[in-house]
């Protein structure tokens, strides 16, 4: 029968009602798992790892800085994927998931920026240095702001979904361009600054390996952030679906009045 064949398809979850039901079932698990991972990871990192010989206790900031920075980028990638799915397959849930994810991305970017600045203060001697990586996150932050502002500004939900999706696509290209531009631009200013290696710890392309003592709590925190992201996005997507339905119902009421 066709119904069984359909139920096996992933796109089945694009139906709002099915999505709501599935999310409600999954959410408690995600909330619990993310809280557990984060609490264990952060407590482990904060209380039970030694200070770094060079950076002292500031190394503990890594447990917040790295996962949030990682998820700040992944969140944008998720929004990009969701936007593409909306543009190609016109599944409303996909567009709403992108909308739901954006504020989460903003907060993660903010956490990455704030922890970066606080960490930088004793290392660089100032709260803000125009380090390429930090600057890129600032630009990413601006992209998030523009994306959310566009969603808020447009009355018609489908038009808003279309426009934000195109903005997300174009923005992604320009975000990558900006990343290279910033790298290029800063090279001329801070050539060979050795303190910059602090920032180098924060990326996957670093030459310095984070040593094992820090590795496990860090991994736990990363997993915790990923789960927290999933939980938040699922929950907020459900909220967006309901808000969208309210809007549709009210529009229908007005049309039939």
């Amino acid at each position: 029968m066709t119904i069984t064949a359909k139920a096996n398809s992933l796109w089945e979850y694009a139906n709002p009602r099915k999505f709501l039901a599935t999310s409600e079932r999954l959410l408690p698990f995600f909330w619990l798992a993310s809280t557990t991972c984060l609490v264990v990871g952060l407590v482990w990192g904060f209380f039970f790892t030694p200070d770094d010989y060079k950076q002292g206790s500031t190394v503990k900031i890594i447990y917040l800085h790295v996962p949030s920075a990682l998820m700040a980028i992944n969140c944008w990638l998720m929004m990009l994927a969701a936007s593409l799915i909306w543009l190609v397959r016109r599944h409303h849930v996909s567009a709403l998931a992108a909308r739901a994810a954006a504020p989460v991305g903003i907060v993660f970017t903010l956490v990455a920026l704030v922890t970066g600045a606080i960490w930088g203060q004793p290392m660089w001697g100032s709260w803000w240095a125009w380090d390429p990586r930090l600057t890129s996150f600032l630009i990413l932050f601006l992209f998030y702001l523009g994306y959310v502002a566009l969603w808020e500004a447009i009355e018609d939900p489908d038009t808003a979904a279309d426009l934000t999706s195109v903005l997300c696509l174009v923005g992604s290209v320009f975000a990558i361009l900006s990343r290279y531009a910033v790298n290029f631009w800063n090279q001329g200013l801070h050539q060979g600054a050795s303190v910059m290696r602090v920032a180098a710890v924060t990326g996957s392309d670093t030459e310095e390996k984070v040593s094992n003592i820090y590795f496990f709590p860090l991994m736990l925190c990363i997993v915790g952030f990923v789960l927290l992201f999933i939980a938040l996005v699922l929950y907020r997507t459900c909220t967006e679906i309901r808000a969208r339905r309210i809007k549709a119902l009210l529009a229908r009421e007005r049309a039939n009045a």
Partner: peptide, 10 residues
């Protein structure tokens, strides 16, 4: 009927 709750929310 508003119980119909599909991809277009109505």
């Amino acid at each position: 009927p508003i119980e119909d709750f599909d991809g277009a929310f109505l």
